[in-house]
């Protein structure tokens, strides 16, 4: 697993963690992000249970886990949150922030650990990183893709953590950390967005929010990070994308051909 500082200003920095060459083939690759403010850390979408040892190893290069103040789970997926109990057991002082909608569901990952959550209200909220005085903002991203979902904006670094939005299933673990050629990157995002994103209107709402923020970097939970003009390119591409697509039209009209109809044939 690799980690790289993607923003640094004095003692405030962002670390991107991911591209694990040694992970099980069946595991989808994920990016985890660590914000370090002085001696305090905030971990974004800490990842699945299976990759906890590797993520911890990367985090420990930058900060002691006891100094992690907060942990953000943007939604309920296992690749995002199933490692939660291990982090919380290691450091019981961590506060976990997650959409209020999923708090009770995430408790199913507990593995005998007492998990408690700060449920983020639907309209989002501001949160300070420990005692650093630095604020981050949870930005509504409902139905992008999860029904209770947040992105995160950090005005200090001007980085927008977009979760699954902008996500790409990249072909190998040497693939570039930053988007280098937007047009050729589309092929790795297209299927992911079409199938995982359930609502066009929610996407457009989210696009408006990102434009209002106008960040200099957009960091997704899968794939590569967008910088500068590539963010607007992505937003425009998203506006023109047909989402919530399952299979193609011919299969939709040929229900009889589907395996589950075998009983009727």
């Amino acid at each position: 697993m690799k980690s790289e500082i993607i923003f640094e200003q004095d003692d405030y920095y962002w670390v991107a963690i991911g591209r694990d060459k040694h992970k099980n083939e069946g595991l989808v690759d994920t990016n985890e992000y660590l914000i370090v403010a002085g001696n305090e850390g905030f971990l974004l979408d800490p990842g699945g249970l299976e990759i906890f040892p590797e993520v911890l190893n990367e985090v420990a290069k930058y900060i002691h886990p006891k100094d992690i103040r907060g942990l953000f789970a943007s939604h309920q997926d296992p690749d995002i949150a199933s490692s939660l109990p291990l982090w919380v057991e290691l450091n019981p002082d961590i506060t976990v922030y997650t959409p209020w909608l999923w708090a009770g569901f995430l408790s199913h990952f507990a593995m005998g650990v007492e998990l408690s959550f700060v449920g983020i209200p639907d309209n989002g909220m501001e949160q300070q990183i420990g005692s650093s005085g630095k604020s981050i903002y949870f930005v509504p991203a409902h139905y992008c893709h999860s029904s209770g979902n947040f992105s995160l904006y950090d005005p200090t670094a001007d980085i927008f953590f977009s979760g699954d939005m902008g996500g790409a299933l990249v072909p190998d673990m040497d693939y570039n950390l930053f988007v280098e050629n937007f047009s050729s990157h589309i092929q790795y995002m297209e299927g992911f967005h079409k199938r995982w994103m359930p609502s066009k209107s929610a996407l457009l709402d989210w696009v408006n929010r990102v434009r209002a923020i106008n960040p200099s970097m957009m960091a997704p939970q899968h794939g590569s990070i967008f910088k500068g003009e590539d963010i607007e390119r992505y937003l425009r591409w998203l506006e023109g994308l047909e989402v919530s697509v399952w299979n193609n039209e011919s299969e939709k009209t040929n229900i009889m051909g589907e395996p589950w109809m075998k009983w009727k044939r």
């Binding site: 040892p53 911890l56 420990a60 291990l86 593995m111």
Partner: peptide, 18 residues
Amino acid sequence: KKFSQYSRAIDILLKGEN
């Protein structure tokens, strides 16, 4: 499972990989 993940984490940290 939890124990084995912690144990693996220790292995990795001790090896100082990367």
